[in-house]
Amino acid sequence: MRIVKLDNARGLALCADENGARSSVEVELVLPVEVGDTVLVHAGTALARVPAKANA
């Protein structure tokens, strides 16, 4: 999912999936992140930052 908006104080982000659907996501485990980053989200928590270019 792509980060649309960040609330750094609460460790939360508003993320959009490929269809544009938005949801709140915990980003504490992948900090630091920026708006526009792509993160791998599972059950409302970002587990990994996805690099800009795939290497595998």
């Binding site: 504490e28 485990l29 900090l31 587990l47 990994a48 930052r49 996805v50 795939a54 290497n55 595998a56």
Partner: peptide
């Protein structure tokens, strides 16, 4: 690790701590 674009060999240390 084939899925190296998101899997670090040591995992997500912060997640393991939490």
């Amino acid at each position: 690790v084939q899925y190296s674009r998101v899997v670090p060999y040591e995992g997500n240390l912060r997640a393991l701590e939490v």
